[in-house]
């Protein structure tokens, strides 16, 4: 490899890209989808609409799975029953996001966290955002509670929970 002076490839600089020094084609696609939620997540979304967080229990490994699923991926069998878990939990890990999903900067940073839900098996949780707290005050293992949208604004979506906030003692 060292015998080759340069490797193949023709870099395009930022200016060449912006000024379109080369020939470019632009193209947009707008793909729209209707994803079926499936049996377990449909039940989960229905629960959120009622202000409840639901999990599914597997009676072989006895885990309470959150988010719920129709089958236990470890035992590879159908799960057995619905379990209502709490709308509180503790922070497994968290981060402060300064960017949107297209890499543009956010106006205001957003605190995101994985929250282990009380009543589910240890380590079981989901992704959500935090509110009513400064980033510097957040810590791993902090107790948090869901802040729900008003009943008439809930539509059966993960965003029916506005955010999680620190649980006052």
């Amino acid at each position: 490899m060292e015998s080759k002076k340069t490797l193949p490839g023709t870099p395009i600089t930022g200016a060449e890209w912006e000024n379109e020094v080369y020939s470019f084609r632009k193209h947009s696609v707008q793909l729209r989808y209707a994803w079926d939620a499936g049996s377990a997540v449909s039940g989960f979304l229905e629960g959120l609409k009622e202000g409840r967080i639901l999990g599914r229990r597997c009676n072989r490994c006895m885990r309470v799975l959150v988010p719920p699923r129709a089958f236990c991926e470890r035992c590879f069998r159908s799960t057995d029953e619905w379990v209502e878990v709490k709308d509180t939990g503790k922070i497994n890990t968290y981060s402060v996001s300064y960017v949107n999903n297209d890499a543009s900067r956010r106006d205001k940073p957003l605190i995101v966290a994985v929250i282990e839900i009380d009543g589910a098996s240890p380590g079981m949780g989901f992704l959500h955002v935090l509110g009513e707290v400064e980033p510097s005050k957040v810590h791993v293992d902090m107790k948090v509670k869901a802040v729900w949208k008003p009943r008439d604004e809930r539509v059966g979506a993960i965003t029916d929970i506005k955010y999680f906030k620190p649980l006052e003692v």
Partner: peptide, 19 residues
């Protein structure tokens, strides 16, 4: 009770013509 979730994936591209 079965739900579905509607969303979109708007993607834009700028292709170089190649060498």
């Amino acid at each position: 009770q079965a739900k579905n979730w509607v969303d979109s994936l708007p993607l834009s591209y700028k292709y170089s013509a190649g060498v």
